[in-house]
């Protein structure tokens, strides 16, 4: 059985990351934007784990551990913000949330 070289995993991670980035840039629904960010984080996790396997080091997986924790915290706070915004403005359309406009 041939081995899957690490580059394949990295390319896959890059593709997932790019898809997530595109999602952040083109969707207007703030929650979907948020989800795209989670996608990006997961792509990074994949890369971490791949390298951890390649280099036979546990540090990569420990990093993934922290990434997950932070992502959880970030999701909680972010969603709370979205709820607060929705209460004030009745909208979660990113285009309409532009108070900092000139």
């Amino acid at each position: 059985m041939t081995v899957v070289p690490i580059t394949w995993y990295l390319i896959l991670g890059a593709i997932l990351f790019t898809i997530g980035a595109v999602g952040v840039l083109i969707r207007r629904n703030v929650i979907v934007i948020f989800m795209s960010i989670e996608l990006m984080l997961n792509a990074v996790n994949l890369v971490f784990v791949a390298f951890s396997r390649q280099l036979h080091s546990m540090d990569g997986q420990v990093a993934v551990f922290f990434v997950m924790t932070v992502a959880a915290a970030e999701a909680a706070v972010g969603l709370a913000v979205i709820i607060a915004m929705f209460r004030n403005r009745e909208t979660i359309n990113a285009d309409e949330l532009s108070l900092l406009r000139w």
């Binding site: 980035a21 083109i26 207007r28 990113a94 949330l97 108070l99 900092l100 406009r101 000139w102």
Partner: peptide, 17 residues
Amino acid sequence: WRRLQTGNVQHYAVSML
């Protein structure tokens, strides 16, 4: 130049990219 400040975060993200 202030037209750059659209207030739309995604526009800013594009320029960051």
